[in-house]
Design a binder for these strands. Structure first.
Lengths: 399, 399
DNA sequence: CTGTTAGCGCATTCAT
DNA sequence: ATGAATGCGCTAACAG
């Protein structure tokens, strides 16, 4: 029923080995012979048996791209870029060095992350790209470290994209880390420069590196402005008890979430930080909470653009205007951010470029940065959603 | 170096066959023996060799999910739902019936679609889910039909999600089609009921089923209202010459696109239809064009929510207000649509539910609908971006 | 440049 | 309920 390499060999009157060689193209074959083989392949409509090939070669052409939330363009853009770099070159549909770039959605769950890695390991994947922030739970870090080491041992190339390097992991080909801390700092500095002093912060889920770094930047800017004791303990640092259910935020389809409060007590900014998932809804509810706690707030910084959208909605629903009454800022500069009204002030991350670079690194077509680590800069995009605060006094409701 | 089934068998003092049986769980094994084997697996940290397993069993645990644009939540939501249904059950990380659900980004390119299918075929994928609208090019349809037939022949379960059934393809397990036509019709009826008579339409790329069906619904509503000759030829029907570059709209990273004009000449609505990619930018430029052609326009219907966002921006940039001067409507009801200002009137598609169902169909855990075909209804979501047109006369610029 | 020979690691007959 | 034997389809030495 199914046509094999041997069938092709017979039709082309060559040995199976020769057919294998022309198909893999990694060995010299006479042009005439190649033609004959290729014709036989076409005639017979032959399709290589991947598993057999992978078994014999002890490696497959599978490349896995892990994302935390496939419904979030933040990941979609990176994954798409990587996939383009990996699988997009030929359009023949014929056999050849075609890699199969696939994306796997962990939904932010550490278990699923590990499970996918095992599945990819089982497939003897050629490479794995991990995108987005990591969970800072010590157990999970340990599990990930050993798992990635095993993958690397088995010949799988591991690349991190938008995720900080794993300490002591020489197994990793390269880590492309976003400068979330610097971006967060510049964003808050921008607000401070505009004159804001009471700034609410809607942070992401606890124990995520992305959350922590952006928040650190924010706090550093506040401290530099004398609004906070720089000696305060770091927020959301490893070792903190697991936030109840945070970090498990699955993408869609889970209504009913309520933004809960997280760490508090930063001097001078008491209660101005609320944690929640990276969702529009969390942004909405956390902002309502912030506005209730601190009615004198003049600005809200959100964990990312999606959260910022929710924050904007909450601000408006309270009858306040953006940016006249309250400034709002996001992070990532996703495509829709410029279309928000007013256009969202945010921090641009070169997601496409980073994803593409990760793809090349995974393919081995780009040399890794020195030390295997590169930090990707985040650029402030000051737009219309932020403006100087109203000169003291009460605010008038919009309209 | 790498530990095999035989190693586990030796450690557990059983035969390799027994180990295989407990791992696959599809054969009776004594409880005590199973325990011993499982312990050996753990001790040795054994990971099944996927390719070897697939080769011997002539099938793999790979399930492919094809999407047109991974950076678009429309696809992300469906793919994430399907993936949850397929791979999300166990968190053991251990071996077992774990399927590997992966998403493949075609970027809307027919070649890449075929290439991915070949790659999946090569891997002997257990199932394939095709999401989103199809291209109506006859050659491509033929190629897809034979390719899918081959996949089905090889035992791969094929499911269509958000895509119309392929004519004469009994190879397909099930087709879940969205009622794009009905949704489009109800949307335009809504506008007509509000009193609009001059309605611009920013259509999607030519030759996409989604584009055609939504447009057909629009035109049907117009015809029913006597605004168009019902006997007019169908728009964007197969056989039309390929639109220059349309249908190839790659996701991100390609600035510089200009919305070009498409079919025209529908009686009574001359030039009120413009085609372009499903992007925010296309919506922006097409709307500018529509406004230029027909300054008396009172409403703009967009191909989808993303395009609608661009349309909103264009309307505003012309100094017009939404909905006072121009109503704007989208399609899909993506999460961000309710956050637009004003909230976007659109047509809701149950993307998560459809994706989840497709996942179950692919797994064989849900019985296919009668005839293998189900139509999923689209619900009108009337929100603030649409309102009755101004009573005749010129419009005043906003502000 | 091409053919021959051996496995790759596992699932599955068949026996028992 | 378990073990022994066979082959899945291909690649990679090794010859020539």
């Amino acid at each position: 029923m199914t046509v094999t390499l041997a069938d092709v060999a017979a039709r082309a009157r060559v040995s199976p080995a020769t057919v294998s060689r022309v198909l893999n193209g990694n060995y010299p074959v006479a042009a005439a012979t190649r033609e004959r083989v290729l014709r036989a392949v076409d005639d017979l409509d032959y399709v290589l048996n991947g598993p057999a090939s992978s078994l014999a070669a002890a490696t497959s052409d599978l490349v896995g791209i892990l994302v935390n939330d496939i419904a979030d363009p933040f990941f979609g853009i990176m994954a798409g870029a990587a996939q383009t770099e990996i699988g997009g070159q030929e359009g023949t549909g014929r056999a050849g060095g075609e890699k199969l770039a696939v994306v796997c959605n962990t939904g932010g769950s550490p278990e699923r992350e590990l499970t996918y890695l095992t599945l990819l390991q089982r497939q003897r994947a050629a490479a794995v790209i991990l995108t987005g922030g990591a969970l800072e739970d010590p157990d999970h870090i340990a599990a990930m470290t050993t798992k990635l080491a095993k993958l690397a041992d088995a010949g799988t190339r591991v690349v991190l994209c938008g995720r900080p390097p794993l300490p002591g992991s020489d197994a990793i080909v390269a880590s492309l880390a976003f400068d979330n801390r610097g971006g967060g700092q510049r964003l808050t500095e921008h607000l401070l420069t505009l004159g804001h002093r009471r700034i609410g912060y809607v942070a992401g889920p606890l124990e995520r590196t992305t959350t922590r770094h952006r928040l650190e930047g924010h706090l550093a800017a506040l401290a530099a402005a004398g609004l906070r004791d720089p000696a305060s303990p770091d927020p959301a640092s490893p070792g903190t008890e697991r936030g109840e259910g945070y970090g498990e935020s699955p993408g869609e389809g889970r209504p009913g979430h309520e933004g809960r409060e997280g760490h508090e007590g930063h001097e001078g900014q008491e209660g101005l930080i609320v944690h929640g998932p990276y969702s529009r809804r969390a942004g909405y509810e956390a902002t309502l909470e912030l506005l209730r706690r601190a009615p004198d707030l003049t600005a809200v910084v959100a964990a990312n653009d999606t959260v910022a959208l929710g924050a904007c909605a909450a601000v408006r629903d309270q009858g306040l205007r953006i940016p006249e009454d309250v400034s709002v800022a996001g992070f990532d500069d996703l495509p829709f951010s410029v279309d928000a009204t007013p256009a969202l002030t945010t921090v641009r991350l070169p997601l496409y470029e980073a994803g593409a670079r990760a793809g090349r690194l995974a393919m081995g077509t780009e040399t890794p940065p020195p030390g295997g680590i590169a930090t990707i800069t985040a650029e402030l995009m000051a737009r219309a959603s932020t403006a100087p605060p109203r000169a003291a006094g009460g605010r008038g409701p919009a309209d």
